[in-house]
Computed example of a mutant assay.
Amino acid sequence: MRDVLAQLTRLLDHGQEALLCQVVETKGSTPQKAGALMLVDPSGGQVGTLGGGCVENEVKQKALRRLGQSGADRHTFVLDHDYAWADGLICGGKMVILAEAFRGPEAAAYFLAYRNLLDAGLGLVEAVAIDPERCGADVIGARWLFGPDAELVASLPNREPPGAVANLVEPIDRRPRLASTRGVATLPVLPRIRLVVVGAGHVGQAVAKLAAEADFDVTIVDDRAQYANPERFPMADQILVGPMDEVLPALETTPHTYALIVTRGHGHDQEALFHLAPTTAAYVGLIGSKRKIRLIFDGLREQGVAEEHLARVTAPIGMPIGSQTVPEIAISVVAQLIARRNLGPEAVTTNPFARVESEDAPEAVGS
């Protein structure tokens, strides 16, 4: 999405038209969900995707025919048509896609506001008119941009949202869902998550790579410059090198921070967890076997770490997919992080090791 908006604002700033195609409603199984964006420039270049195949190509060709025209077109695709067979898109679902050619300073101001909100990382909601008569909008494709507290930030065209639209928008802290109702699509973008990976070894490197591709902002922490460096972690937004008892207490955490402990030894794991368990980070995960985790938790209790802080630690980490290799472990861990981000705390099982006494505890994904 950030790539699409960057190119969109660049075209508008240079006085060019920008053809934006956006999935605004889906039902059933589809290759992309509401909110997916594809930008087409006047020469036919493309950024973003609507899922590929004939649907994407057909929308692209129709969008190009809108050059120089005003207003948006609504396209509906049911993915059991003959054209879908060749692409393997016999999903049985339905996609509604809006296509519009944007131009001029008003559009540039709107999408710059969108880009700024996205870069701030605190979340936003865009409302898009699909059926103007039902939602009270002037035109199909009218857009309203709301900040994390559901405050109106921008609109295109420059109009106040009808009551039917404003009443559908919720603050981001209520975790609003993608929805299409009463003629308007509400498209939330949840806050960006900063993932702090403590440990720059093989697992940390594999997790960081996948997490960055999944749109996490990655911070690497390690006391070894030969491991924690831009050559090994080109995807990292920040690399912090130094003793954990200096780096971690100074680390700023918020409810939009996840912390993952995958260091090279039990002592380092325990030290990292000592500093991270009491923080405001929404997710703190520790890799390791049941025995290792039990020993670390017992040691932290002796150090005075409160039970309530230990109880919120996720250990072992990762989805139960039978991971053995480093890439498999990374996949299982990042899958859990995505579930936690998209579905909320209920997506992560309760920590079974806060008071574990038995060797029968489930195995971790790695150590």
Rank of each mutant, 00 (worst) to 15 (best):
7 Q>C: 11
9 T>H: 04
13 D>T: 09
19 L>Y: 04
30 T>A: 13
33 K>S: 10
36 A>K: 12
37 L>K: 09
39 L>I: 05
39 L>H: 09
40 V>P: 06
42 P>V: 10
50 L>P: 00
55 V>M: 15
56 E>C: 03
59 V>A: 02
66 R>L: 14
72 A>P: 07
76 T>C: 14
81 H>G: 15
83 Y>L: 15
85 W>R: 15
86 A>D: 11
88 G>H: 06
96 V>D: 14
98 L>I: 00
98 L>M: 07
107 A>S: 08
108 A>W: 05
108 A>E: 07
117 L>Y: 09
121 G>Y: 04
126 E>F: 02
130 I>A: 11
134 R>C: 04
137 A>H: 04
138 D>F: 06
140 I>N: 00
157 P>M: 07
163 G>P: 02
170 E>C: 10
192 R>H: 12
196 V>I: 13
199 G>N: 00
201 G>M: 05
203 V>E: 01
205 Q>C: 09
213 E>W: 11
213 E>Q: 15
228 A>I: 12
231 E>S: 08
233 F>C: 00
235 M>D: 07
241 V>P: 07
241 V>S: 10
248 L>D: 01
248 L>Q: 06
255 P>G: 05
272 A>R: 10
274 F>L: 13
284 V>L: 05
291 R>S: 12
294 R>M: 15
299 G>C: 08
307 E>H: 13
312 R>D: 06
314 T>C: 11
314 T>Y: 04
314 T>E: 12
318 G>R: 08
318 G>I: 12
323 S>K: 13
324 Q>V: 15
325 T>F: 10
329 I>G: 11
341 R>P: 08
344 G>R: 10
351 N>S: 13
358 S>T: 15
